[in-house]
Computed example of a mutant assay.
Amino acid sequence: MEMAAGAGTGTAAGARAWLTVLTTTDDPGKAQALARGAVEARAAACAQIAGPVTSVYRWKGAVETASEWQVLFKTTGARYDALEAYLLAAHDYDTPEIIATPVVRGSADYLRWVEEETVEEETVKGDGMEGETAE
């Protein structure tokens, strides 16, 4: 079995890390907007939307039940702060769920693609690819 480059090799924390980041929202249109915005901002390489799911939680002293849509983002450790900042700004919940889980292993080609798609916009513009921009 081949491990992805950097996986389990003792690299510096965050130097080569991949994450899945989960959030939820109460409307499929909002889930779509959060997913699209994060990918457009290159804070995530992709996002998957699943739902509805039933969430049961305690909020302000009462047990609540709600239908929600989960959005699962694929990103890198280097872009986590940008993704979290985006979600906090774009989300309409007072306290949105934002949970990051490390990807321990994965396809080297897929993880390389995640890295390539989450390169910050300034890096993409300055990489010698004249006329191409990340939006």
Results as ranks from 00 to 15, higher is better:
residue 4 A to Y: 12
residue 129 M to L: 13
residue 64 E to D: 02
residue 117 E to K: 15
residue 85 A to N: 15
residue 85 A to T: 10
residue 9 T to Q: 12
residue 129 M to F: 09
residue 107 S to N: 10
residue 89 A to Q: 15
residue 67 S to Q: 15
residue 71 V to R: 03
residue 133 T to E: 08
residue 35 A to K: 07
residue 19 L to M: 09
residue 67 S to E: 14
residue 109 D to Y: 08
residue 132 E to N: 15
residue 78 A to E: 14
residue 37 G to I: 10
residue 55 S to Q: 00
residue 98 I to A: 00
residue 100 A to W: 04
residue 43 A to Y: 14
residue 32 Q to D: 01
residue 121 E to Q: 05
residue 113 W to I: 00
residue 97 E to P: 01
residue 74 K to W: 04
residue 77 G to W: 11
residue 17 A to I: 03
residue 72 L to W: 10
residue 8 G to W: 01
residue 105 R to W: 14
residue 102 P to K: 09
residue 131 G to N: 13
residue 134 A to P: 09
residue 83 L to M: 15
residue 116 E to Y: 13
residue 131 G to L: 02
residue 119 V to L: 11
residue 93 Y to D: 10
residue 38 A to Q: 10
residue 15 A to C: 06
residue 97 E to T: 02
residue 9 T to A: 06
residue 84 E to C: 07
residue 33 A to G: 05
residue 47 A to E: 03
residue 79 R to W: 08
residue 20 T to N: 11
residue 110 Y to M: 12
residue 114 V to K: 08
residue 99 I to E: 14
residue 70 Q to S: 04
residue 114 V to I: 14
residue 106 G to S: 02
residue 70 Q to E: 08
residue 34 L to M: 03
residue 134 A to W: 10
residue 57 Y to N: 10
residue 58 R to E: 15
residue 7 A to M: 13
residue 83 L to G: 07
residue 100 A to P: 04
residue 91 H to F: 03
residue 87 L to V: 00
residue 102 P to W: 01
residue 39 V to N: 11
residue 89 A to D: 10
residue 10 G to H: 09
residue 41 A to M: 05
residue 69 W to G: 08
residue 75 T to Q: 04
residue 12 A to K: 06
residue 99 I to D: 06
residue 120 E to V: 05
residue 18 W to A: 00
residue 42 R to W: 02
residue 68 E to R: 09
residue 15 A to H: 06
residue 66 A to S: 12
residue 18 W to T: 00
residue 100 A to Y: 02
residue 112 R to A: 13
residue 35 A to Y: 03
residue 125 K to I: 15
residue 23 T to N: 07
residue 88 L to K: 10
